[in-house]
């Protein structure tokens, strides 16, 4: 099992750090796409199968909240979980993000563990990438 990840942040450094933390944390990442703002993020979604999105809020051209609300209107995108990673952390902004469909919220600066934990909470898998409710032995039938 592995996940395709999309990272949306206008800072190149922040995208690199998120990507680095993801790969170091043992998170099972298959492909990793990145985008500099919401519009670019949506363009990636048009072409690529994405399982989870990590997105900033404050970005030029299209911010993260607008990207979330556009995603909601498309049946193919509306169920892709989005974790917001933002410096903005007022209660109202956090609520706004959740109301727009975000499944998690990480405040910058963050520790690798914060990211890892939120990812697993949102995807419903434990630290080893296994589903919490997997029964023993169910995998021995996999080829």
């Amino acid at each position: 099992m592995s996940f395709n990840v999309l990272i949306v942040d206008d800072s190149f450094s922040m995208r690199s750090v998120i990507k680095k933390v993801l790969s170091l944390s043992g998170f099972r990442m298959d492909r990793c796409f990145d985008a500099g703002n919401g519009r670019e993020g949506l363009a990636v979604l048009e072409k690529e199968w994405v399982d989870i999105i990590l997105s900033d809020i404050n970005m030029p051209e299209m911010n993260g909240l607008e990207m979330l609300s556009r995603m909601k209107q498309n049946p193919v995108y509306q169920n892709i979980p989005v974790i917001v990673i933002s410096t903005e952390g007022s209660e109202e902004r956090v609520n706004e993000a959740f109301c727009n469909g975000a499944k998690g919220f990480i405040k910058k600066p963050f520790l690798p563990e914060d990211l890892k934990r939120t990812l697993h909470d949102v995807l419903g898998v434990d630290a080893d990438g296994n589903y919490a409710d997997d029964q023993k032995g169910s995998n021995d039938l996999d080829f």
Binding site: M1, N4, F143
Partner: peptide, 25 residues
Amino acid sequence: LSEELAKYPDIEVVGVAPDPFVARD
């Protein structure tokens, strides 16, 4: 399903997947 389909020579079950992420892989 794997066992049943294995009985037919023109069909090959190349894999099974328990969830969408494995399926995509």
